[in-house]
């Protein structure tokens, strides 16, 4: 009984529908964020109205947004982002991809390796990453490398298993066809394997980002004196609540932007041309 949308009009109206849907999405999204802000403001009003929590007024949205220009001028946001994103997160994710993708190809292609590696990999995967912290601090020369290690040990598994799952979906006949057409090994890798598993690889990297993002902040709460996690700790210790909420908001916004980059990559490399409902 479903009316066939595509059959009803020419291409132009389909485009118009898509863009009006996009506009609707955008408007409702902004509205949703506004509602969140209002709930936040009402919560703050409630806190201020109670005598014992009067001091927490700076948790509210208005002081928080007023704190941004000050923090930006002091360079705190920039330096925290630089330390967390460039030095730690990007390095960690890069190493995780460098280890995880070949490991995933091995898991996906060799039945023997898949079965023998299952128990040790699952065991290591389920060691909570931060449990490595005391050991990592002893083994690595600096805090920075200890944090990178924690990110790698957390992020390598989604990459590995997503890559392996992508390989499992490859049609064996494709290899035959490629070989019959005279493709070399490198050509098979470049023309068949990589395009086929790009979607799964980026899905794995998106999951890896999510885990790394959870690990990064607590890792920075200990020891280091730079980064987003440290900024949070610094704000709490100096009892600067608007600084604290501004940093929490910054973490959410940056995490959202990074996540959106991976969603865009996933949609770009999806064979099905179906949008990922993030």
């Amino acid at each position: 009984m479903r009316t066939d949308v595509a059959a009803r009009g020419p291409e132009g109206s389909a485009f118009a529908r898509a863009s009006s849907r996009g506009a609707r999405h955008f408007v409702l999204g902004v509205l949703g964020v506004l509602v969140l802000g209002i709930v936040w403001q009402i919560g703050t009003w409630y806190l201020v109205s109670q005598p014992e929590t009067r001091a927490f007024g700076n948790f509210g949205p208005i002081p928080t947004f007023q704190a941004f220009p000050r923090l930006w001028e002091q360079g705190r946001i920039q330096s925290a982002i630089n330390a967390s994103l460039v030095d730690r997160l990007a390095t960690g994710l890069f190493i995780a991809a460098l280890i995880g993708i070949p490991l995933g190809i091995l898991v996906g292609r060799s039945k023997w390796f898949r079965e023998i590696s299952h128990s040790p990999f699952q065991f290591i995967r389920m060691i909570s990453p931060l449990a490595w912290m005391p050991l990592a601090v002893l083994v690595f020369p600096g805090w920075n490398w200890a944090i990178v290690y924690l990110i790698v040990i957390a992020a390598v598994w989604p990459v590995t298993y997503a890559t392996a799952a992508g390989l499992a979906k490859l049609e064996p006949a494709w290899y035959k066809v490629a070989r019959n057409l005279g493709a070399s090994r490198i050509q098979i890798l470049k023309e068949i394997v990589l395009p086929a598993i790009a979607f799964d690889m980026f899905s794995g990297l998106r999951l890896a980002l999510g885990v790394a993002w959870i690990v990064l902040v607590p890792a920075e709460l200990l020891g280091v004196t730079s980064g987003l996690g440290y900024a949070i700790k610094d704000a709490r210790e100096t009892v600067d609540y608007s600084y604290l909420t501004a940093m929490v908001l910054t973490i959410g916004v940056i995490g959202f932007l990074l996540d959106s980059i991976f969603v865009a990559l996933i949609n770009r490399y999806s064979w099905y041309h179906r949008r990922t409902a993030s």
Partner: peptide
């Protein structure tokens, strides 16, 4: 769903431990 998508994604990407002081 459309209205909560953006705020929920934002809250989701706040690393849980950053709520610790609060």
């Amino acid at each position: 769903g459309d209205m909560t998508h953006l705020p929920f994604q934002l809250l989701r990407m706040v690393s849980p431990l950053s709520w610790e002081p609060i």
